[in-house]
């Protein structure tokens, strides 16, 4: 994938991200994983976790990490610029010329149609991504618990991710030690 392609892809994603960063997930999945096939679903999930855990706007973090993964620092810059160029211009135009844009009847009708669609689009990748995340009957409580913590108890996703990282590190260390203890026995 060339730098120009990267810019164009993120430009497209930026233009159609309506309703915040999460609305970008289905668009990115379609563009980068399905169409261009430059990222696997697993990589996509990894970068998403990273972008969530760090401070800042999720969409821009995503552009940074995907750009970096594909084309290094230059790739990041291209992806970010592509992603925010159009939104910033649109906002500026609105601010300068159409201050009453949101009271417009046509606009509000279009948005009444778009909003439920955005929610459905965000829900759909859950099922596609679940398989690649290694979901099985034994592990399905993990995403369920995460979703419940955030949705029902109002825990910030950041804390959920930070806790996961900590648990992962501890768990990883323990299993590493167990493997070391076991290995000499196996070789004997």
């Amino acid at each position: 994938m060339s730098l120009i392609q990267l810019f164009v892809s993120f430009f497209k994603i930026g233009v159609f991200t309506i309703g915040g960063g999460y609305a970008m997930i289905p668009l990115m999945e379609e563009e980068l994983v399905e169409r261009r096939r430059c990222l696997s679903r697993v990589e996509f999930l990894d970068l998403m976790a990273l972008s969530q855990a760090m401070p800042g706007v999720f969409a821009v973090n995503m552009a940074t990490s995907v750009g970096y993964r594909l084309k290094g620092v230059t790739g990041s810059v291209c992806a970010i610029l592509g992603n925010i160029l159009m939104p910033v211009c649109i906002i500026l135009l609105l601010a300068m010329f159409f201050r009453h844009f949101r009271d417009n009847d046509i606009v509000s009708r279009i948005f009444m149609g778009i909003r439920p669609a955005v929610v459905a689009l965000i829900a759909a990748p859950v099922f596609r991504l679940a398989k690649d995340a290694g979901l099985s009957w034994r592990t399905c409580w993990i995403p369920l618990l995460a979703a419940l913590l955030i949705w029902a108890l109002g825990v910030s996703p950041v804390w959920v991710i930070v806790a996961t990282i900590l648990i992962g590190v501890v768990w990883g260390k323990i299993s590493e030690r167990n493997n070391k203890d076991k290995q000499p026995e196996q070789t004997e």
């Binding site: 997930i25 679940a130 995403p143 618990l145 995460a146 979703a147 991710i161 992962g168 990883g172």
Partner: peptide
């Protein structure tokens, strides 16, 4: 260790996206 963290995170992220849809 990093691989273990990523394996867990992938599962959690699926839940995070689900919650994003639920919240909306």
């Amino acid at each position: 260790v990093v691989r273990m963290v990523l394996r867990l995170l992938r599962l959690v992220i699926v839940g995070v996206i689900a919650s994003a849809a639920l919240v909306l």
